[in-house]
Design a protein around this nucleic acid. Sequence first.
DNA 1: GAAGGTTACGCACAACGTAAACATG
DNA 2: CATGTTTACGTTGTGCGTAACCTTC
Lengths: 93, 93
Amino acid sequence: MPELRDLRSVVVLAEELHFGRAAARLGISASALSRRVRAVEAELGVVLFERTSRTVELTEAGRELATRLPAALRQLDRALAAARWHSDGGWQV
Amino acid sequence: MPELRDLRSVVVLAEELHFGRAAARLGISASALSRRVRAVEAELGVVLFERTSRTVELTEAGRELATRLPAALRQLDRALAAARWHSDGGWQV
DNA sequence: GAAGGTTACGCACAACGTAAACATG
DNA sequence: CATGTTTACGTTGTGCGTAACCTTC
């Protein structure tokens, strides 16, 4: 029930461990990112990041998710790319 | 850029090949489904379904996508499940 | 003329940015 | 007290259902 946008946000935040930088990379405000991540955590029923107002760290669950998501998202992108390719002629057999 | 909701809709429609039934399974109206699918096609720049007002069929690109998506979506769900599991105690080592 | 897909239209909810608030090093 | 995350608030845009429309058998 989290959407792709939300999952990609989690991945970027896991890389940056900083809401400001991650939000900039995503082209949204830090507060928007904060809300997105909290929403994901609420939907999953899992805390992914341990925040203090000075630091952001991954929890065990967050690390697990951040580890597995990129491959899953790439596979998804490959499926979409395959569909595009099939329309743009394919081998033109 | 299509979201998960949209991709799942494509999968269901590919299974049903009928907007009414697919929409019912998704818990939305047929018109909403029609719009979702058209939006996906526009974003991908690919026609996925060949519609007449009597039949719905998969195009080559649509078949390709419908074939690859389920596995990709499952992998994504596994990533989410893994995160959940990690929080709910794991092995409680 | 019935069944099924699409377009028009009005509305409601979700998501955003700005700004203020709060916490921590 | 500077840096960085979160909450409040008002606004906008996205997505929906209902209903009307068009096409095909």
